[in-house]
Amino acid sequence: MSEKWIYWFEELSTADNDLVGKKCANLGEMSRLGLRVPPGFAVSVNGYERFMSESGAGEQIRRYVSENRGLLDKVEFQVQAGRQIREIIESKEMPKAMREELQDHYTDLCKRLDMEDVSVAVRSSGAVSMPGQMETYLNVVGRREVTRKVIRVWGSAFTTRAIAFRLEQGMEMEKAPIGVAVLKMVNAKCAGVCLTVLPTIGDTSKIVVEGNWGLGESVVSGEITPDQFIVDKEQEEYECVLGDKTKMVCYHPGGICFSEVPHEKRCVPCLDELELREIVRVAKDVEAHFKVPQDMEWVIDSDISFPENVFWVQTRPAKYMKKKENESEYLAELMSRVFKM
């Protein structure tokens, strides 16, 4: 029996970072904390390595790289090499045993959700921060497609930038510590972010929730002004500033795209009070667990009923102005200028 290389999210935790990559490990940790994450599974780095070795792709890449060693430090060649290596990977079929195991997990996922041919997202999940590992495929349907997209995510570890990065870091060219997440697509009514700190002033007594209709990408990308809710952690009082939600991000056969928000929905808050309270409740729990302010991404599914429809797709330590460090020193410097006037 070969080594285990596919894990359900709930089997994982942050300790498995090197095994399945950050994104999957994080989703695992989140589901352990009781956060509702979109159901799904992770393909570990062992899966990648097994594929490379069993399919022959690994050997082929090694040969290609050693033949062209002298050319690799040239940028034009790196572009070509990236294309070549991706082609090698994508041209391989997944070995039968692996394919069946992967596809059976997909089928199990469909059974779990009591749906046929459930629509999933296939995302890369790097164990180390490495440029170029951003590949994401949305709306993937069916056993065959899932297999193809997993291979393509593996191939995406060989973008030009990723190759340059390997050279800089002295990493072996054919290695790629990359995991893959396969998770149910959420039919997003609305989505957004939640920070358990006001990042601009480092005020940890407040939670800020920002959201827009549709997928969270519109909020994260900063292309529109989302609705903003600022909630006091103690008193639970909140203020709401409506954004001019003119556009939203939707699924599209080839991925995602911006579309117009219908006029009647623009000046309506994208969250109702119950949903907001649920987001805040969970965010406070998670912050209490990690003991540092969190930067979280949430999405509300329109097919399922509240509160089962509040999903979390990300949580990580928030970046914000910490009072104790740089701000204090900056203020000390300003204070010293009082003596110069």
């Binding site: 204090s328 020193e329 203020l331 000390a332 410097e333 204070m335 010293s336 003596f339």
Partner: peptide
């Protein structure tokens, strides 16, 4: 003294 001041004033800020 200005350099020293920037460190000495930190307890007031923090």
């Amino acid at each position: 003294r200005e350099g020293e001041f920037r460190k000495a004033i930190l307890p007031f800020i923090q």
